[in-house]
């Protein structure tokens, strides 16, 4: 770790609106920059996105490098990657944080490979720690075998590039009194950037059914639902709780839930008031998807299952007995008996 070299957050905007993950990265960026005594800056590419640049300042960026151009209106893979690598080479930040959105997951490896530097995917936390008596930025990622995480470092090459999954970190608090410098960098946009590849259209499609991310209650079934032949009882429980259904990867592979409703590292991150996990062992790759939930209830027949380490309330038992009983009990709660 050095005390020169800025920390950069790559801002992502769509139609001039910042993605939430950019604000999440700024909260972590602020903590790291204070700890390391370096400047926290953001970079933003787009067309007429001054408003979004100011929002980055209000959320903690001390500087914003703003690259505006009509042809940068949409994300353009070659132009964005080349321009970003250009400002990075010129200003030499030491840490670069990028949201692991569909676009970020493409842009980050392009940029990191241009710079021949290290890139860690979908971190769930970042902090400065000591490795072999040397301070290092620790990239925390989900590990195999229960509630384990792995620490990744990038000891030599700079900048180190890290993607962070949306919805995992808290958002930075907005404060209009925050001051920051907006530094306009004239993008040297070339026709060549668009000759091999060009974004022609961006289409928004509203999600089918109730949105998973905004639900107050999420009921998530795992492979253990096989004992009940599928997901009808998961739906039953979700209906009573007014929640939405989700699944683990094996549940998706089984076709019990669509891909857009898989929870975890490769799927969605949710932070509902109540998260219910049914027959899922609690692999870290899965549990990272609901760490921010207010209350977690877990049911599994294996008392040793790591899911119980990740739950507030645990019921050890067979779902074939527990689930009907739980549904009955909640029905009583919801529907006061007529008297």
């Amino acid at each position: 770790m050095s005390n020169s070299g800025e920390i950069w957050v790559i801002g992502e905007q769509r139609r001039g609106r910042l993605e939430e993950v950019s604000l999440e990265l700024l909260s972590k960026g602020m903590a790291l920059s204070q700890r390391m005594g370096v400047t926290l800056s953001a970079v933003l590419l787009g067309d007429e996105v001054g408003e979004a640049a100011r929002e980055l300042v209000f959320h903690g960026a001390e500087k914003v490098y703003l690259l505006e151009h009509a042809r940068l209106r949409y994300y353009q893979s070659e132009a964005y990657a080349r321009l970003l690598a250009g400002v990075i080479k010129e200003r030499e930040p030491q840490i670069i944080l990028i949201g692991a959105t569909e676009i970020g997951k493409e842009l980050a490896p392009r940029v990191a490979a241009k710079l021949r530097t290290g890139l860690t995917a979908h971190c769930i936390d970042l902090y400065v720690g000591e490795v072999d008596a040397t301070p290092q930025l620790i990239h925390v990622v989900p590990g195999w075998g229960g509630n384990l995480v792995m620490h990744i470092i990038c000891p030599q090459r700079r900048p180190e590039v890290i993607t962070v999954k949306p919805g995992v970190l808290p958002k930075a608090v907005r404060a209009e009194k925050r001051k920051g410098k907006i530094i306009r960098v004239k993008p040297d946009v070339r026709d060549k950037d668009f000759s091999r590849i060009e974004t022609v259209e961006v289409v928004k499609e509203p999600p089918k059914g109730k949105s998973l991310e905004s639900a107050d209650v999420v009921v998530c079934g795992g492979w253990g639902m096989n004992a009940l032949g599928g997901f009808s009882k998961v739906q039953g429980l979700a209906d009573i709780l007014g929640g939405v259904v989700a699944g683990t990867r094996p549940a998706m592979d089984k076709g019990w839930v669509e891909e857009a409703r898989m929870i975890g590292q490769s799927g969605k991150t949710v932070s509902p008031e109540l998260f219910v996990s049914l027959g899922a062992s609690g692999a870290m790759h899965y549990t990272t998807g609901f760490m921010g939930s207010k209350v977690v209830l877990a049911v599994d027949r294996n008392p040793q299952a790591p899911i119980f380490q990740m739950a507030d309330i645990g019921i050890v038992g067979d779902l074939r007995e527990v689930l009907p009983c739980l549904i009955e009990e909640l029905k009583k709660e919801r529907m006061p008996r007529k008297s």
């Binding site: 021949r116 490795v131 620490h151 645990g314």
Partner: peptide, 21 residues
């Protein structure tokens, strides 16, 4: 040729209540 490397495996402290009924 790998700029990144693993620096250990750790237990995740979830901070949950872990009450078993």
């Amino acid at each position: 040729g790998s700029p990144t490397c693993a620096a250990g495996v750790y237990e995740h402290e979830s901070g949950r209540r872990r009450e078993i009924m």
